[in-house]
Amino acid sequence: MIKAYRSNCEAISLSADGDLAHLSEDIVWIDLINPHRDEEKRVEALLGAELPTREDLKDIEPSSRLYTEDNNVFMTASLVWKADSSDPQLTDVAFILVGNRLVTIRYAEPKSFNLFIAAITRTPHEIRSGAVLLLKLLETIVDRTAEIIENTVVGIDHVAKGIFGGEARSKRKEPRYLEDKIAEIASFHRLVSKVRDSLTSLARVQSFLHATTLVQEDKDAKEMGASIARDIHSLSEHVSYISGNLTFLLDASLGIINVEQNAIIKIFSIASVVFLPPTLVASIYGMNFARMPELQWAYGYPLAIFVMLISAIIPFIVFRWKGWL
């Protein structure tokens, strides 16, 4: 699918089977969403420039993601997709500046694009160039990333309350309670890792774009690019803090599991020690020797029971006094 936007933010559709021979001068953005090869060839013919394929977007080398060719600027960034689901992913999006136009190629629909399109069509205003449009789009992407981080912090705080909160202690008796919390921590860690990779990619794109002539010659664009760079740097530091917090929660969960397991083992160990003396007494009087005077006593059996009880009670009292129980 091919969508185009004029400088006044009016959206138009460029069908793949149309007979459009050239692009209007006021078209500043061409957005290719899951394009077929014939659609790519059509846009290439209209622009007079070769577009990267889906396989090209997967390259991770900086020289393949950020380069200029025939005065056209080619950039590829990894954006977080499906951040609100249980399976967040990264999708590669190409940003291409061809003359005064911006071309984007994407094989997913990150929420930031929908937010940006809704914003420019709801409050339309004149867009001078594709470079300015790209900076505004990057600004929306960074804002959406900040929103993802904010939602992640709220979720992590909820997990922390579930691990350390007073109400959670009774719930820990439920089977696999802390194991489920560890699974939640792993899910948040996966999302945070993808956000970090996305911010790194966006920082490279912003730095490369900021050095281009299109931005350097425009004072407003230059200031906007510097503001985006500061936001990306701030978010990257915040993500590093969140990652450390997740590591702490994971270590704490494993520590609590070990403590609870040790408490169970401690109970069994103490029970073994408490019942060891009675077992010894019962074992002695259970031996079948001919000469055991106590076997002939009228009160031998009650006495043996009394000795076993005393031998169990004394260790229990000692353990309570020592604070081991």
Rank of each mutant, 00 (worst) to 15 (best):
Thr91Val: 06
Lys266Cys: 03
Met224Arg: 12
Val132Ser: 15
Arg6Pro: 03
Phe275Cys: 02
Ala108Asp: 12
Asn72Trp: 03
Thr213Asp: 14
Asp251Val: 01
Ser13Lys: 15
Leu178Gln: 08
Gln261Leu: 08
Leu280Trp: 09
Arg172Val: 10
Ile149Met: 10
Ser283Ala: 09
Ala4Phe: 04
Leu309Ile: 15
Gly99Val: 01
Gly225Ser: 14
Leu97Val: 04
Val142Asn: 02
Asp87Phe: 06
Val281Arg: 12
Gly244Val: 02
Leu309Arg: 15
Ser170His: 14
Pro302Arg: 01
Ile149Glu: 12
Pro35Cys: 08
Glu44Asn: 13
Val98His: 13
Ile12Glu: 14
Ile163Asp: 10
Trp81Cys: 11
Gln216Lys: 13
His189Leu: 06
Thr76Ile: 11
Asp56Val: 03
Val154Tyr: 08
Ser243Gly: 10
Leu250Gln: 13
Thr68Gly: 09
Glu39Val: 07
Val281Ser: 09
Glu167Met: 12
Ile232Asn: 09
Leu199Pro: 01
Glu184Met: 05
Leu115Pro: 01
Met287Trp: 01
Glu69Ile: 05
Ile310Leu: 14
Asp31Ile: 05
Ala271Met: 12
Leu14His: 02
Ala160Tyr: 05
Glu223Thr: 08
Arg196Trp: 10
Ile60Leu: 12
Lys41Trp: 00
Ser272Asn: 06
Arg128Ala: 14
Ile120Leu: 00
Glu39Trp: 13
Ile314Leu: 13
His22Phe: 02
Ala168Arg: 10
Leu254Lys: 00
Pro315Val: 13
Ser234Phe: 11
Leu178Ile: 08
His125Ser: 13
Arg204Trp: 04
Gln206Pro: 02
Leu246His: 11
Lys41Glu: 15
Ser13Asp: 15
Asn258Asp: 00
Asp220Phe: 06
Leu32Gln: 13
Arg172Asp: 05
Phe306Glu: 09
Ile60Asn: 14
Arg172Lys: 14
Asn151Trp: 06
Gly244Pro: 09
Lys111Gly: 00
Ile264Phe: 03
Ser86Asp: 06
Glu223Leu: 09
Thr140Gly: 01
Leu138Lys: 03
Glu294Thr: 04
Glu184Arg: 12
Lys171Met: 07
Val80Glu: 03
Leu79Ser: 00
Ala11Gln: 15
Ala203Arg: 15
Ala94Gly: 04
Ala298Tyr: 08
Met308His: 14
Val73Cys: 04
Met75Gly: 07
Met75Cys: 11
Glu10Asn: 14
Ile156Thr: 13
Phe188Asn: 10
Met1Ser: 14
Glu10Met: 10
Asp59His: 15
Ile120Thr: 01
Phe95Met: 05
Leu325Lys: 09
Ala271Glu: 02
Thr68His: 07
Glu109Cys: 03
Val43Phe: 06
Val273Gly: 10
Val80Gly: 04
Ser234Gln: 14
Glu237Cys: 08
Ser13Asn: 12
Glu223Ala: 09
Lys111Ile: 04
Glu223Ser: 11
Val93Phe: 04
Thr53Met: 07
Ala77Cys: 02
Phe74His: 06
Asp231His: 15
Asn262Asp: 07
Ala304Glu: 05
Thr279Pro: 04
Leu115Phe: 02
Ser78Pro: 00
Pro88Trp: 05
Ala282Gln: 08
Leu47Lys: 07
Arg128Met: 09
Lys322Leu: 12
Gln89Asn: 11
Ser85Lys: 12
Glu61Arg: 12
Ser187Thr: 08
Ser170Trp: 12
Ala11Tyr: 04
Leu23Ile: 07
Asn72Ser: 11
Lys58Met: 05
Gln261Gly: 04
Val192His: 07
Ser207Val: 02
Arg65His: 01
Glu147Leu: 08
Arg204Phe: 08
Ser234Thr: 15
Leu135Ser: 01
